[in-house]
Design a binder for these strands. Structure first.
Lengths: 217, 217
DNA sequence: TTCATTTGAGACATTGATGTCTCAAAATTA
DNA sequence: TAATTTTGAGACATCAATGTCTCAAATGAA
């Protein structure tokens, strides 16, 4: 079934992201190939793991590219990044969980590079006044990636509908869990598909007052 | 050094949370004991892993208890939970990453129980009007735990100062990453209010000025 | 059809972690 | 001090996963 290298790697992620110690038998079975063929494609477990990691990093880097995180305002850039990275959330989950990759220089460098791009995005957003400055850009980067990974796990285990993923991630990360006093009825019902697609109506953004007096101690 | 079982388990977490495949030698060394003694305390790797998982779940359950998540308003309850769970964030990171524990009934039941309590907290918060209803309580539970785990990893690797952990977690999770326009006056930002360029779907950017930690020393 | 290539299934040796043992050194207690 | 207990270091045996092979079957091309 999956004779292509990347296809095999994606099947491997499905197993490895949840059980890093899975045997090669399992991985081969998940990919629909025999252990012999798996071994022909990737000479050994270590090579397989490394290639999965590299695939994940390539995909995340591609997501940063297609989102154009270096351009424009930070907030829409981050929303684009959400849309671009959610499809590969499972790869990111693998990256987040598999930390024994970090003794590999190639992976390490690539990883640092992407994290630096993410960090720069948040820093720019803070400088633009879009993101909060009480939270360090490093923490925002870290937390964002953790949530992308969380989305990957949740989708894989069926706890989160793929359709809701991008919306849930973007809204929680950007807006937080607290409900705000209504502005207009803006946050409409269910997001559905793709938050990136335009929705002509809500073009106005009414800012409203701060949270009212529902104050607490 | 660490002759107590729980002390050994905590040392084990320090290793296992980042490298689930660490050898028993490493774990023993990290705990400051010999492999023989480690084996006397825990008969086998499987037992050790299981006990670490149980310790993590017990600690998280204790955090839910001391925070009193079943009582009072949901938001302050969650803030209390943050404070109570951050000290054991590394244990939670282990729980989040080690998913091969889930074939153990005892652990599974305990896990489901705590997640149910978390879920109930968010559900109550939504009914009280404190938490957003566009995000499912299940997703909020999941994301919260992911961020707790993220805090654990970040602290362990020195990317987050322990002093900042509770604040960073609570503020990001509750308030989100977006800066809110100042309530009282002067707007500082430039691009925040640029109506033209921003993303359509845009949740309302209404806001609260999530005041920083109310409950912090 | 025939030939060439790839795949799958299994056998086999290797490797390395684990489980188990012993005994000397250290620690604790009387 | 002497006696008891605990610990550490190491030497094995065991066992499971991996790496490597062969060969028949399947696939695809000519």
């Amino acid at each position: 079934m999956a004779t292509d290298r990347d296809t095999v790697l994606e099947a491997a992620v499905g197993v490895l992201s949840r059980r890093p110690t899975a045997h090669l038998d399992e991985i081969a079975r998940a990919a629909g190939i025999s252990r012999a063929t798996l071994h022909r494609l990737f000479p050994g477990r270590e090579a397989l793991i490394r290639e999965v990691g590299l695939l994940g990093l390539r995909r995340f880097a591609a997501a940063l590219d297609t989102a154009g995180v270096e351009e424009g305002d930070a907030e829409p850039a981050l929303r684009r990044l959400v849309d671009a990275s959610v499809p590969d959330a499972m790869l990111c989950a693998f990256l987040a969980g598999e930390n024994q990759l970090y003794d590999n220089d190639e992976i390490n460098d690539l990883w640092e590079l992407q994290i630096a791009r993410l960090h720069a995005l948040f820093l720019r957003g803070q400088q633009q006044g879009a993101f909060r400055i009480e939270l360090s850009a490093a923490w925002l980067s870290e937390a964002f990636f953790d949530l992308v990974a969380g989305v990957g796990w949740a989708i894989q285990d069926g706890r989160l509908a793929p359709r809701d993923a991008a919306f849930s991630l973007a809204e929680l990360f950007l807006g937080g869990a607290l409900r705000r006093p209504e502005a207009t009825g803006a946050t409409a019902g269910h997001s559905t598909a793709d938050p990136g697609t335009t929705d002509p109506l809500t073009s106005d953004r009414s800012t409203t007052d701060c949270r009212p007096d529902t104050d607490k101690p």
